Amino acid sequence: MTSRELWIGTYPVAGAGNPVGLGEGVWSVHLDDETGELADARQVAVVASPSFVAADGDRLYAAVEDGAGRVVLLTPDEAGALTARHETPSGGAYPCHVLVTEHALLVANYSSGTLGVLPRQADGTFAEAAPQVHGHTGTGPRADRQEGPHAHFVAIAPGGRHVLVVDLGTDEVRRYAWDGTTATPDGIAATFAPGTGPRHLDFSADGRFAYVSGELDGAVHVLAWDAASATGTPVQQVPAVVVAADARTDDERARLGQGDHWIRHGAGDLSSHLLVDGDHVLVTVRGADVLTRWRIGSDGLLVDGRSHALGGHWPRHFAVVGPFVVVALEKPGELVVLDDAGHARSRLPVPSAACVLPRD
């Protein structure tokens, strides 16, 4: 038997802005990579709201998702506990995603809608230079969620010459020229229909297609990707929640409005994290509380979608670890492990689980 350590970021149990003391921080758990069993949950750092964590070897960077906006560097001791070594402003308010590059951290600050570029030194600590901060303007039709820009995710485009910022508030993917240390505004890489609310993005292995979760429209969007210009063109849209028609009773099919092959779920479903796993696109959906797996066809388009119930509420981030998918369920405060058939292998309580990061 072998096991893999996972670092888990969390939200404040009592809500944003409340004092810590109910298990908020970074947790460590172990996953048996043969059986899918989770064990040994323990809190290894007290941090106010580390809703997203990213690593560079044993160095862990936690985005402290609050109005002040900070990123904290933590390093482990011999017992595996994490100690805060350094922190720096994130370049905006409520940072929700961090991408580690060789010379800088790239941070999506949700509330302010800004991209922060945080220089870092060879030892992983933050350079004294102030972060570069790139703002944006624009709105969308959803007054409650799109009253302004909301940067939700950062990626490096295929080819490495551009930084992409997925903006839920303006229904755009923003583009920045990137030289490894400096980001320079370079227009819009992709535009979606008003009210899409793009959240997360990932690329096919050959870089010819981008897959984007629409949080507000409950869909997965496929973009044909031109690497030379770092521009995406929409070519397909599929539901983020699907269930085989033959998995429902006659009454359920009549109530939900059965199509030829698939049934779509409720308009209130919110797509969350998305990633490409080999020849599949995986996406979690809050509200419906499922993990959906779409197969990538030979033409890059998505086929044969199927959703799997998670048995818990409000899935956030997830990670593929060997043959398993480990999903953070915020509202019950637990992790669930699914096999590739969508069956739950194990569950383990972790307060307000938000992010899953396999330790190198």
Results as ranks from 00 to 15, higher is better:
T2S: 14
R4V: 14
L6C: 09
V13M: 01
V13G: 00
V13T: 10
A16V: 14
V20L: 13
E34G: 10
R42W: 13
S49F: 03
S51C: 14
L60G: 05
V64Q: 15
E65S: 09
R70V: 09
R70W: 10
V72I: 14
D77L: 09
A79E: 14
A79V: 08
G80M: 05
A84L: 09
A84S: 14
T88Y: 05
L99Q: 10
Y110K: 02
V117K: 09
R120K: 15
G124F: 06
G135V: 11
E147L: 04
A151W: 01
F153H: 15
A155C: 02
I156M: 04
I156S: 06
I156N: 04
V165R: 01
G169K: 05
R174T: 12
T182D: 05
T182Y: 00
A193C: 00
G195M: 05
D206H: 09
G207S: 08
V212I: 14
G214D: 00
D226W: 11
V235C: 09
Q237W: 01
P239W: 02
D251Q: 14
G259M: 07
G266D: 14
G278A: 12
G287D: 06
G287W: 05
R295H: 14
D299M: 01
D299Y: 02
G300F: 03
L301F: 03
G311T: 11
P315W: 03
H317N: 15
V327G: 01
G333S: 07
G342R: 03
G342S: 06
P349Q: 10
V350D: 09
S352V: 03
A353M: 10
